[in-house]
Amino acid sequence: MRTMAQILTAITTRGEADRPLPELLCVECAHALSVAAVAMTLMSEAGHQAVIGSSGPLASRLEEIQFDLGEGPGLEASRAQHTIAHDDLTGAVLTPWPSFASAALAEGIVAVTAVPLRLSGVGLGSLCVYRSSRGPLDQHRTATTHAYAGAAVGILVHLQDQMWPETLHPDLDEPMVYRAVVHQATGFLAVKASVGTVDALLLLRAHAFATDQALVHIAREVLSGRLRLHPEADDD
């Protein structure tokens, strides 16, 4: 078992200065647990999300699905502030996120554990561990998962402590650039459809889900004017 301090030391002394720390943490965690994918997500109390680290392409894809749907174990863990564990997604298991569960199964993921990232009573997001074999994590791997979640919080504090209060550290900000277009389209659609930003995002998500396309793609289409999700009459 590695302690939180050992994990942090291992990650910060790897000499891969060009790779962001959250990404290194996810890679290390996936390796230590021998799991298919690990991802780290920020979430504010207002519900804004940002995927800030992933162990590889599969983790990125799973997080994109979770972000696009607005549902999944990571979001549930962030909101509920406790660990969410589903050891077998193949059975007739009811999860609060059926769409995500079937999408994850299609990617070969059959079990998932999501640990909330918390500090001084403030929820910061979650660490998601995706597995391709069913069954619960044993005590040892559960402890390791929580040690990595603790290290993830340590990294967040370490990075943000170097910053001005209201700007994000580049390692946390850069992963957000990819989805900036979704937030722009949210503001855009809020005006065109005369709705609030929360409803506008729901409209975008619903259309992405209904047409089985990526939310980022739908957002680009809306911003370019090629796709209208609002009534003609409201347009000028």
């Binding site: 504010s44 804004h48 403030v122 910061l124 209201e166 809020a190 065109k192």
Partner: peptide, 28 residues
């Protein structure tokens, strides 16, 4: 640490808000 946690949340919200505002101006 608690202060940093709150600042992190605010920074994330600001980032999203600025993108949304760009979209509002693009549309209007």
């Amino acid at each position: 640490a608690g202060l940093i946690a709150e600042q992190l949340q605010t920074a994330l919200d600001n980032r999203v808000l600025i993108e949304q505002a760009k979209g509002v101006l693009m549309a209007s």
